[in-house]
Amino acid sequence: MIKMLAFVLIGISSIASATDVVSIPRVTPYEGGVGTDDVRQKCDWNAKLSENIAHFAEGGATVTDTDVSRLSGKVLTMRITQVHAIGGGGLTGPKWAAVHGELHDGSKLVGSFDAHQHTSVGLTTCGSLNHLGKELGEDIADWLKTPTLDAKL
């Protein structure tokens, strides 16, 4: 009887945690006028950002190709608000990026953030941006554990 109760409780716990999983669109769009054409066309770090968040969230987030306006539950939408990435990798100085995100639970805004990272790591511009995407992904995943409004990451 105790084993049966334990299995039931584990099942209920799994169902409850599944509803807490945050859905994230696969690609994070650039805000109008942000990023050069080269960065937008050649670097896919903005598609890897969601994957990085899901990885660091350890099951607390999932990447989706579904139109998030059709989803119920928790949804994180983001946009890239700044990117400074001059060609030449580390030889052309530091690179940085900023992302704005909003976490909705249904129609209710339950969290928002502005995240910023900079780096001198990377032999190429895209490599530097990939590094920034990992750093931002880890910061955002940590924030998802206890989201707040107007957080600065």
Rank of each mutant, 00 (worst) to 15 (best):
M1E: 02
K3M: 03
M4H: 04
V8S: 10
I12G: 09
S13P: 02
I15C: 15
I15D: 08
V21L: 02
P29T: 08
E31R: 05
G32V: 03
T36K: 03
V39P: 02
R40W: 04
Q41I: 02
K42I: 07
D44W: 12
W45V: 06
N46K: 06
N46Q: 08
A47D: 07
K48P: 01
K48N: 00
K48Q: 04
K48R: 05
L49E: 09
A57L: 06
G59C: 06
T64F: 07
D65A: 01
D67N: 00
D67V: 07
S69I: 11
Q82P: 02
Q82T: 13
H84Y: 14
I86Q: 07
G87K: 11
G88I: 13
G89A: 06
T92G: 04
T92D: 08
A97K: 12
H100N: 04
G111N: 05
F113G: 04
D114P: 03
Q117W: 08
H118Y: 10
S120N: 15
V121F: 02
T125K: 01
C126Y: 01
C126N: 08
S128V: 05
L132T: 04
G133H: 08
G137W: 14
I140E: 11
A141Y: 05
A141W: 09
T146H: 15
A151R: 05
